[in-house]
């Protein structure tokens, strides 16, 4: 399973590095969203810093949709999806591999967006570990749900419009927990301030990884 996961993840990451879609479209989209939010909030730095945690995660969520759609579209051309099925790869490995590739791209995006939040919104980070751990856990959850719902929508002609509709409501817990953790991290919160929300993220991740590992094979075969 792990060998298959690594094989698929490195393949997807190589494709992204080669095509530069992530670098030239997905990440810039996240940055543009952040800038637009700043315009919408106006020049009040206090207001902007206050809204920074939620806006960061909204930008991450929207950008995740693009990253997932990209991951799905890579397998849609030239029957690549059938190629993966015919190779006899472990479906759990395939799920984990595609999720890992999305997660690594999201981590790069989040680092860039976090810098953007500090520069654009004037937010100052006081509890860096809480910020980092919440980002990591949130990323795992987004990648797992994104991979799962991306596979569900893969065989449909309306997948571009259906995916955000399915995906965004499902990841509300990530938005909520991530935002609360960031609020605590920016306000210099204690571990207790974020622990409840971190636990929510851990449960969310565990549930969607388990569902993905178990359901990815049947979903793939039903396409």
């Amino acid at each position: 399973m792990w060998g298959d996961a690594w094989l698929v993840a490195t393949k997807d990451l190589r494709i992204e590095l080669r095509s530069k879609v992530g670098l030239s479209q997905v990440i810039p989209f996240g940055v543009v969203a952040l800038v637009l939010f700043a315009f919408a909030l106006g020049p009040d730095r206090v207001q902007m810093a206050k809204g920074a945690p939620g806006l960061f995660w909204v930008a991450v969520l929207f950008t995740t949709v693009l990253a997932v759609q990209r991951s799905v579209s890579v397998e849609a051309s030239d029957g690549a999806q059938d190629g993966l099925r015919l190779a006899g790869l472990d479906p759990a490995g395939l799920f984990l591999g595609k999720g890992l590739a999305i997660a690594l791209q999201l981590i790069v995006l989040e680092v860039i967006l976090a810098v953007g939040v500090v520069l654009l919104y004037g937010a100052s980070v006081t509890t860096l570990w809480l910020l980092a751990v919440s980002c990591l856990l949130g990323t795992v959850g987004l990648a797992a749900t994104g991979t799962l719902y991306g596979a569900l929508s893969a065989g449909l002609k309306v997948r571009e419009t259906l995916l955000p509709f399915l995906f965004l409501p499902i990841v509300t817990p990530v938005l909520l927990a991530g935002t609360r953790c960031w609020q605590a991290a920016l306000a210099g919160g204690t571990p207790a301030d974020g622990s409840l929300w971190l636990r929510l993220l851990v449960v969310f991740d565990a549930v969607y990884i388990a569902v993905g590992v178990l359901a990815f094979g049947p979903i793939q075969e039903s396409l």
Binding site: K11, R18, S77, D78, A80, G83
Partner: peptide, 8 residues
């Protein structure tokens, strides 16, 4: 289909 990835 050939099951190939254009970017590889």
């Amino acid at each position: 289909a050939s099951h190939l990835y254009d970017d590889l």
